[in-house]
């Protein structure tokens, strides 16, 4: 199949998943009504008589922001995973390995345990604190790596990131244990959820995801070179250390923003790049945007499963991504192996 056709199919799947996510739930909204509601909101076209205005409110204020947020978070994590694997030339690398998630988690735990609130930040206090702690952790990890190894080699980055993550995770566990009343809230935050999120989160995440995805696509040839290893990339003319810094900072901002809004949703960052490369090859010009589409689609479907399977209860999204993701990942790999 031609690459263009595959991309169009993927985009169609993404659109379909969005419609599905918006339509299916405690109240089913058929596609015709979804279109009518959008037409009413955007162009003032009157709603058909059979449509309950409550449905409109539910769709526009609760379901749509939730589905869009899921898509954006999925896209952000998938793109981050793709870039990390290439930058570190390691198919098991993950943006979480840099300490973004543990840092963000620790920041969130501090807010929860401290019972902090801020008039200015409002509901943004938790994500803003999470993001700041996440970014600070990465900066410390990379600065430390660059201090002990001037060339900033991949192994050093992976190692310092891992050590720092473990250290901060330990701090977080200690914090949770010392405040039993909040332990459950901390754990739930870590597992992630798209429930009760506002439109404002979407408006923050949207530009970040768009901009980062575009920038990574712009750096496609640099990322291509980096997958061949540090020596080859430098010999081909890449300013390796500088490019690596830029990539790591962008990945941290992207991942950090995503996890600080919804919690630490794992697995997408790991499987999305592998699945996408299986179908599109490794060229980052295609893989970066395709990862965004695939990650978004996958996350919307996982969130759909999370809120409908044991309704009215919800399964934590982090569990769903792993439960669906792991068998899917193995299937894609085995299917690919038979063909090859």
């Amino acid at each position: 199949m031609k690459k263009n056709v595959k991309i169009i199919l993927l985009a169609a799947a993404a659109l379909f998943s969005l419609l599905l996510g918006i339509g299916v739930g405690s109240v089913f909204v058929p596609p015709g009504h979804i279109v009518a509601i959008f037409a009413n909101k955007l162009f003032g076209i009157p709603l058909p008589s059979g449509l309950n205005p409550v449905t409109q409110g539910l769709l526009l204020n609760i379901r749509l922001p939730r589905v869009l947020l899921a898509f954006l978070v999925g896209a952000a994590l998938a793109v981050s995973g793709t870039v990390m694997q290439s930058v570190l030339k390691n198919p098991l690398a993950s943006p979480f390995g840099l300490g973004v998630s543990s840092g963000a988690g620790f920041g969130a735990a501090l807010v929860i345990v401290g019972g902090l609130s801020s008039g200015v930040l409002g509901s943004f206090l938790l994500p803003v604190t999470g993001l700041s702690f996440g970014l600070a952790t990465v900066l410390v990890a990379v600065a430390f790596a660059s201090r002990i190894d001037k060339t900033l080699s991949n192994n050093t980055i992976i190692l310092t990131g891992m050590v720092l993550s473990l250290f901060i995770n330990a701090l977080m566990s200690t914090l949770a244990a010392s405040s039993p009343g909040n332990a459950q809230r901390i754990t739930l935050w870590q597992l992630g959820s798209f429930a009760m999120k506002e439109w404002s989160y979407v408006w923050v995440l949207l530009p970040v995801v768009l901009l980062c995805t575009l920038l990574f696509t712009r750096y496609a040839r640099e990322l291509d070179l980096m997958t061949f290893g540090e020596e080859q990339a430098m010999a081909a003319g890449l300013n390796l250390k500088q490019t690596k810094w830029v990539m790591l900072v962008l990945v941290s901002v992207l991942t950090g923003t995503a996890v600080s809004f919804v919690g630490i949703v794992g697995f997408v960052d790991l499987i999305a790049p592998h699945v996408v490369r299986r179908f599109f090859g490794s060229s980052h010009r295609v893989v970066v945007p395709a990862s965004a589409l695939f990650g978004g689609t996958f996350m919307v479907l996982c969130d759909l499963a999370a809120r409908t399977l044991i309704s009215p209860s919800e399964i934590p999204i982090g569990s769903i991504t792993a439960i669906i993701g792991a068998p899917f990942f193995i299937y894609v790999f085995l299917a690919g192996r038979k063909k090859g």
Partner: peptide, 14 residues
């Protein structure tokens, strides 16, 4: 990471 031979050689033109 898998690239086509053509893509790989084109990387030399970086």
């Amino acid at each position: 990471f898998s690239y086509t031979v053509y893509q790989t050689v084109m990387m030399g033109r970086y």
